[in-house]
């Protein structure tokens, strides 16, 4: 299945300049998203998964800077665009939904106001037409009584409804790329199931690509085509979802899978990853996972492995597999 690629990230490095020094939050990340494909980025806190998505959207705050690397959207470089050109792209071509729908909606404006704002900015239509389109899209994301919700303020809605509104805003201009940063983490599990189902339905016929950021391997298994596993700002494994859950190769990925409690299997004890995620301004030398790795070897401590293909479409950054290539 070869599809056209929509987004190509090559060797992206995003550093934060803080009082405590330079923090390499994202350190050499590369991946490709094809049209209509869902790519999941998994990792724990501090792995750099959110910063990767903010770099792509161009929403880094002032302390953060893209050091090097390229981000190609439909073949053209976006990191060098001016702010104005970036803004045009954002919302129209790529849109983002966030974890906490209450803080990402403006409490002082009605839902309708916020959806039609996006439509009017990007599609140059009049107020009446924008309202019509807004209500249409609210209905599409499964909101009953869309006309009433159009005139409501965000605080009147439940968490699930707010996330539906966020999705409505994000999809209002038919973006080609949707970045979803932990969109269901703050929601209850039955509501999460509704939202995931909705997202799948919405992208099915539109061929929208999704970059799905999450820490939940269950959500990954449910949604993703391709999976990127990140650890301490780097990609440690990159493959398709079936290979990942069947033949995970990196010790971090296998440990992460083994330490996840599963409701469909009987487990006596959970495997544990010892230690904690390293501090970003004090990264371990060599392989960044070596301090917690169950398979650590002499050379892991001083030499950094490179991301290599162990099979077609299966990349692993680990010394265990270096010889096999």
């Amino acid at each position: 299945m070869s599809r056209e690629s929509l987004l190509e990230v090559r060797d992206l490095k995003t550093y934060f300049y803080t009082e405590d020094g330079v923090i390499p939050s994202v350190d050499g990340v590369s991946f490709t998203i094809k049209k209509g494909e869902t790519v999941a980025v998994v990792g724990e806190s501090g792995s750099g998964k959110s910063v990767t998505s903010l770099s792509i959207m161009g929403l880094l705050d002032t302390a953060g800077k893209i050091e090097s690397g390229t981000i190609l959207f439909e073949g053209s470089e976006v990191t060098t665009l001016s702010k104005k050109e970036r803004r045009k792209l954002r919302g129209n071509e790529m849109a983002m939904i966030f974890q906490e729908p209450l803080t990402s909606l403006n409490p002082l404006f009605t839902v309708g106001n916020q959806i039609s704002e996006a439509i009017r900015i990007h599609q140059k239509v009049n107020k009446k037409e924008a309202k019509k389109r807004s209500i249409e899209i609210l209905k599409k994301v499964g909101i009953a009584r869309a006309e009433k919700v159009f005139h409501s303020y965000p605080h009147l809605l439940s968490g699930g409804m707010r996330q539906r509104v966020m999705i409505a805003i994000a999809l209002s201009c038919n973006p080609k790329l949707l970045i979803a940063d932990e969109p269901t983490t703050a929601l209850d599990v039955t509501i999460q199931a509704q939202i995931l189902h909705l997202m799948k339905e919405l992208i099915k016929d539109k061929q929208t690509s999704i970059l799905f950021i999450t820490h939940d391997l269950g959500v990954v298994a449910e949604m993703a085509d391709q999976v990127i596993v990140m650890y301490a700002g780097q990609v440690v494994e990159y493959t398709d979802v079936f290979t990942l859950f069947k033949e995970a190769a990196h010790p971090y990925t296998t440990s992460l899978l083994a330490s996840t409690p599963k409701i469909h299997e009987q487990t006596e004890t959970l495997q544990v990853i010892e230690g904690t995620v390293p501090n970003p301004n004090d990264m371990p030398s060599g392989c960044r996972f070596h301090t917690r790795c169950p398979n650590v070897m002499e050379k892991c401590m001083n030499n950094e492995p490179v991301l290599t293909n162990i099979h077609a479409h299966h990349q692993v950054k680990c010394w265990l597999y270096e010889e096999e290539v």
Partner: peptide, 21 residues
Amino acid sequence: AVPLPDPTLRHKKEGVILEGD
């Protein structure tokens, strides 16, 4: 509603999506 960490069960999963809030 709990997503299972196994992509091969994705389409086999029976059960219901609860509607409403």
